[in-house]
Design a protein around this nucleic acid. Structure first.
Lengths: 202, 202
DNA sequence: TTGACAAAAGAACGAACGTTCTTTACAGTG
DNA sequence: CACTGTAAAGAACGTTCGTTCTTTTGTCAA
């Protein structure tokens, strides 16, 4: 017992979890209690609730502020057997989630404000941003010193680090061969780089 | 008009879609019609339904057999700016036309064979792979010279470029400070790096 | 074989939900 | 200035939902 009103996760709940995972893999949603009766193969809504409460206490599912059930991270975790390849310590292998859009979820917080922009040139090479990479850019006008920003200079997009020099904003490339840009007048920021995507040719 | 009873997707629906995408990014579920009134900023459930029907007709969302709304693939498509940074004029990237693509599909060809591995250390820094980046790795035993591979050396995962020296495979770091690894015996390849993901702190 | 407890079923209910239909507001057009 | 279509609001209704409480069934140990 971990708590008086939330009984332990028991072995049988593992089976229910598996069934729920299967359903979720098919439909990408957690259905109503009534439907879960079918899914779990039981006839009692109240028992379904009890099960969900235990899965919740065990960290497999959670609720939105609106009361809807959603899977949490542990819901997608795979048994360790899968990463059996070798028991090396140095890095953890995180198996790809269920199959849905994990990377998208990692990289994009505000879909409506986010756009992907291919990077050209090597002016940011020392920041590990290469020609052909794709920048994940969140559109907004304000940025902090140190952010990598997409600015509009002379009617062109340019990707640089935002910095300040004697009270004025400047754009600093990450490549010795390129000059620091000191915009006269106002500096127009298109967005802030929040992520990077690179694909290696096969 | 595509159909008599399902009116066209109109520009305004794009805004509603954006709001729904933002909500989904936060809560990973599509809420009830009543909650969607708040999300969309309207007061009419019937109008919410009309909107969802159009989003459905346009292929952004679908329903489970149980009647629950779930996003479909197109829901996760992200706009790709037509002009890359550093070239061309600052076309409005918000423009609805242009390319879209789904990040996960771009990066992952074989979901079941693919795993995400956080990168530790700076041994590949000159290849633009930084500490904290996430490597997209396709699990297989065979690789070509020049590929960046995840190899198992001394029971540890290590990310290096595969090369050949006097007929023997070697692992070459992309950092002068690290030694070339010349494995005695066989070299065990865990997988080949096919992509890179980086997230900048906000 | 009885007692005790966990697992499951069942009933009951108010609140929330999705749906349909009707009405209003408003912008554009002739 | 009326006509028309779209966008939205509002009301009304039957259904489904989640919740709580009570009852039955099954299992195991004393």
């Amino acid at each position: 017992m971990t708590d008086s009103n939330t009984p332990d996760f028991n072995p049988k709940d593992g089976e229910y979890l598996a069934k729920l995972q299967d359903y979720y893999a098919d439909w990408k949603s957690i259905p109503s209690y009534a439907k879960l009766c079918d899914v779990f193969g039981i006839a009692s809504k109240s028992w379904v609730k009890a099960i969900l409460m235990r899965l919740n206490a065990a960290g497999f599912i959670e609720r939105t502020p609106d009361g809807a059930w959603i899977p949490s991270r542990a819901f997608f975790a795979r048994p360790l057997a899968e990463s059996s390849v070798q028991a090396g310590m140095p890095v953890s292998v995180t198996a790809t989630q269920g199959e849905y859009f994990v990377i998208d979820e990692m990289l994009i917080d505000r879909p409506s404000e986010t756009t992907l922009i291919p990077v050209r040139g090597d002016s940011m090479i020392e920041a590990g941003i290469h020609d052909g990479d794709v920048a994940v850019v969140e559109k907004r006008n304000l940025a902090n010193v140190g952010d990598i920003v997409v600015a509009i200079v002379d009617n062109e997009f340019t990707l640089k680090t935002l910095d300040k020099e004697r009270g004025k904003y400047i754009l600093r490339p990450a490549n010795q061969a390129y000059p620091i840009i000191r915009p006269q007048g106002t500096l127009e920021i298109f967005g802030v780089m929040t992520g990077l995507i690179r694909k290696y040719r096969k």
